[in-house]
Design a protein around this nucleic acid. Structure first.
Lengths: 305, 305
DNA sequence: ACCACTTATACAAATTTTGTATAATTATCA
DNA sequence: TGATAATTATACAAAATTTGTATAAGTGGT
């Protein structure tokens, strides 16, 4: 039972004749006769009662007519859906992101994307840097907005810098250093640290440690919460100080004071990652939208960061 | 887009490989490769991202996978339904009948048929003899239980006698002839007649007229109602007498008296009609059931007729 | 660097489908 | 009643399509 056969069958049934069907299908009557009789043989039923003067559909034929009509309609529907998916009119887009780093601009981006591609279903996944890398590698995400990827992954992906953040210090209110408007890293050397757990963001952890080393000390890490918000709560509770990207000031910082560092520290870029050999049309469209909006994103992040 | 192609596609998608699909389908890898690439060309989308080490389905491919799976399931369903319809397990049976003539035995027949063929939908159509002939000819009925067909139609159909009825007289209660237990037709010569309208049952009408003629008079027909029940009501109301098959005593005869005729009149057979060149399996099964039950039908009709 | 395994391509072989010619049947019309 | 026109079925050759074989090219793992 092939689609072409069903088309022939439907034509015969609707036109009530083999010759008429052949004319409509731009083929020749014996070909129609053979297709139908082979279909009948395959199914083991007769589909038409035919004389030289009349072609009448059987009950089995009427059943097949109903089914075949549905199948042909579904074939057409499938063709349309597949083509639309191929061009990005239809589909899904799974975005992974670092919550605090994108909070200021991602909602507007997604809103604009959804307006332009209303048929693409957008899913948002907030994760840690480590989870993002893994999900991206495993194909559970189409794009991610996160920190630079580990070198082992970087060559499979295309990455664009979106904006650069910097490390700042967070202190509890009433801390000994609270009166300073700006701190050198070395000022923190004698204070206990709270740091985001290394698994969640290895690069950040290592960078903080190396910044401390460069300032002449090893941080005394007394806690490693599993979320940035928990780090800020710990700091706000007076448990210790932390060094973190400035963007986490977007979270709830009650009880915390933010202080810029007077040292020159390595910038912390936020990047857009896409695996080009797996990028669907919708993914590419989102990447293009981000790239086109870099200016306004940087303006927002430069101001509110 | 052909069913065979879709089967190949689904195999590749599920097994995530061209070679594996080829093995499962008992074909060879290049054939699979070609089918897929031609499908991609036809649809204008790529369905898989492939390297020599991995085959990954695209978004368009996932869409097609969903659709193709449905199409294949429907194809299988269609095959099953068509075959069941062909063998009579599934289908419909449209029975036309003369109400009063079959009232005593048709319900039991239909009940038995439905029990044996529960998947066949039975439709019952009560009609006049004239309507039955027309509906049967036009293919709106599969079988009819009615009087002998007009000669022009008879050769297209197969007909079996079910039982034979006879003409009897119906008189109003208190009629001049009411005291006679049995009447010659000639006794009715001076009384006005009510006869079922000729269009509805031409043979019956003509037969009554010819019976009267044979008895030496022409009936004085003062009314021709369009249903047998209406004829009986007219008779019961004292409007006139009638001659009709005995079976109509099945109807409401209040105010009417039934009197057998002492004349030898032509029997009025009830027949089963089937058009053999259009008979579906279900229709044939019903005909066989009727033929097998002739004995008990005749017993019922001989007693209660 | 080699091995094992994959997909893509080229070309010949096999299969399937189509088209031409023709037979057989049947309603219609003179 | 016989001729006509229109229909479907069949046989066989031609065309088109599909498949299989051989082989190239690429990639991850040892």
């Amino acid at each position: 039972m092939e689609i072409r056969t069903l088309k022939t069958f439907v034509a015969v049934a609707n036109l009530k004749g083999f010759s008429a069907a052949a004319r409509q299908l731009n083929m020749v009557q014996p070909a129609v006769s053979r297709q139908i009789s082979e279909l009948e043989e395959e199914l083991g039923v007769s589909l038409f009662w035919r004389s030289t003067r009349e072609v009448r559909i059987t009950a089995a034929g009427e059943t097949l007519l109903r089914e075949a009509t549905e199948i042909l309609a579904q074939e057409e529907r499938a063709r349309l859906l597949v083509q639309r998916t191929g061009t990005g009119e239809l589909g899904r887009l799974r975005i992974g992101f670092l919550g605090s780093a994108v909070q200021a601009f991602l909602p507007a981006l997604v809103r604009e994307f959804s307006a332009r591609f209303p048929q693409i279903q957008v899913s948002l996944f907030e994760m840690t840097a480590g989870e993002l890398a893994e999900a991206l590698m495993a194909g559970r995400l189409d794009v991610s907005l996160s920190r630079p990827l580990p070198p082992a992954m970087a060559d499979r992906f295309e990455s664009w810098d979106i904006y650069s953040d910097r490390l700042v210090a967070f202190l509890p209110e009433g801390h000994a250093l609270a009166s300073e408007p700006c701190l050198p890293v070395s000022a923190l050397s004698t204070h206990p640290f709270v740091l985001f757990q290394r698994d969640g963001a290895p690069d950040l952890f290592d960078q903080v440690v190396s910044v401390c080393n460069a300032a002449g000390f090893s941080p005394d890490i007394l806690a490693q919460p599993n979320s940035m918000q928990a780090v800020l709560i710990a700091v706000g509770s007076g448990l210790g100080v932390t060094l973190a990207p400035a963007c986490i000031a977007q979270l709830n910082t009650s009880g915390c004071l933010e202080r810029p560092l007077s040292d020159q520290t390595v910038p912390i870029p936020l990047q857009l990652h896409v695996r080009p050999d797996r990028a669907e049309a919708g993914t590419q469209a989102f990447a293009a939208l981000v790239k086109g909006g870099l200016g306004s994103i940087r303006k927002i992040m430069g101001a509110g960061g």
